[in-house]
């Protein structure tokens, strides 16, 4: 066994969500495995580890820097802890739709982000899609920014999310993910903001009434590889890995968009009241001062290019 294993490199991919067919993280990993097999056949053994089997997102990302994890599908906010420029992707109401986000990430801005992450020992193989984040709550549908007043939303422990609700006049409650379901159920908080796929996978429709399609943050999830694992591969395999990453990203984006459309219908069927916002521009205007305050942390050039490219 050992001699064979030496001859045939292994790539272990970890992510923290389920291995479900509809899971955006699982799709990215599976498509990468398929696309790589198309290109190199049996020459690389890709092993998949769902459900935190290789650890949480931060340890996965640190593991890639150490070379103890080969690959991972990681949420943007966690990447931003290692490379602050990635905070640009979490800026609220930056992208009007997925096409705008893909245009920015596939262009100059995306390249610049990837280069910065490479200096931290992590290779970015593609910007996949977790789906826009939406707001769900038990108080009222969020149609205008004023509807947020007095509604307690659980947010990620990140200054951007707290800042967004403050800018919009709402109330942000940073809370651990594991506490959130019970907190909504018992009313300690009124709601939370998450992508559609996560609402569905965690059965939030059982405890939350209103789904407001705020599209407030484009949830980027990246297909990342340890630079150490990357550099261990033969040059032709490295090229195949990059190609497979690009192909997998394209497939994942298409599938995620299809799923998102189906999910809205399915969540409505589970009893959620779905609404659109009246005027997305009103939300965007309210958060614009945030872009000033984050300019330093993210980098002025990135903020400028992203705003220009997003249009």
């Amino acid at each position: 066994g050992d001699a064979l294993a030496q001859a045939r490199p292994t790539i272990k991919i970890g992510w923290t969500t389920s291995d479900g067919a509809q899971d955006p993280y699982a799709m990215a990993a599976h498509y990468f495995k398929e696309e790589l097999a198309k290109r190199v056949g049996e020459r690389i053994d890709v092993q998949l580890f769902a459900n935190r089997a290789l650890g949480d997102e931060r340890p996965l990302l640190d593991g890639m820097r150490l070379g103890t994890v080969d690959m991972g599908v990681i949420t943007n906010a966690v990447i931003a802890q290692v490379e602050p420029a990635y905070q640009i992707n979490d800026m609220p109401f930056l992208f009007s739709d997925a096409a705008a986000a893909q245009r920015v990430l596939d262009g100059q801005v995306g390249q610049s982000l990837a280069q910065r992450l490479a200096t931290k020992g992590v290779v970015n193989l593609g910007y996949c899609e977790g789906g826009f984040r939406q707001m769900i709550n038990n108080t009222r549908p969020i149609v205008n920014p004023a509807d947020l007043r007095g509604v307690k939303f659980r947010v990620l422990q990140s200054p951007i999310y707290v800042g967004m609700y403050t800018a919009l006049g709402g109330t942000a409650v940073p809370m651990a993910w594991g506490e959130t379901f019970t907190a909504v159920q018992q009313g300690a908080i009124d709601g939370l903001e998450i992508p559609l796929a996560v609402i569905d996978a965690n059965k939030y429709y059982e405890v939350t009434k209103y789904l407001s399609m705020t599209n407030h943050i484009y949830s980027m999830i990246a297909l990342l590889m340890s630079k150490r694992s990357h550099d261990r591969l033969a040059p032709d395999l490295r090229a195949a890995v990059q190609e497979a990453g690009t192909a997998a990203t394209a497939r994942q984006r298409t599938a995620a968009a299809t799923n998102a459309r189906a999910l809205v219908g399915s969540l409505a069927q589970h009893g959620m009241t779905v609404n659109e916002v009246a005027d997305p521009a009103a939300f965007r205007r309210a958060v614009m001062p945030m872009y000033e305050s984050f300019r330093g942390a993210i980098g002025a050039d990135i903020v400028r290019d992203a705003l220009a490219a997003a249009g």
Binding site: R65, L66, V78, Q81, P84, K120, L156, Q157, S158, P159
Partner: peptide
């Protein structure tokens, strides 16, 4: 090896 990064909330 894992230096130079920051925590999510308090940074």
């Amino acid at each position: 090896m894992a230096g130079g990064s920051f925590s999510a909330a308090m940074e």
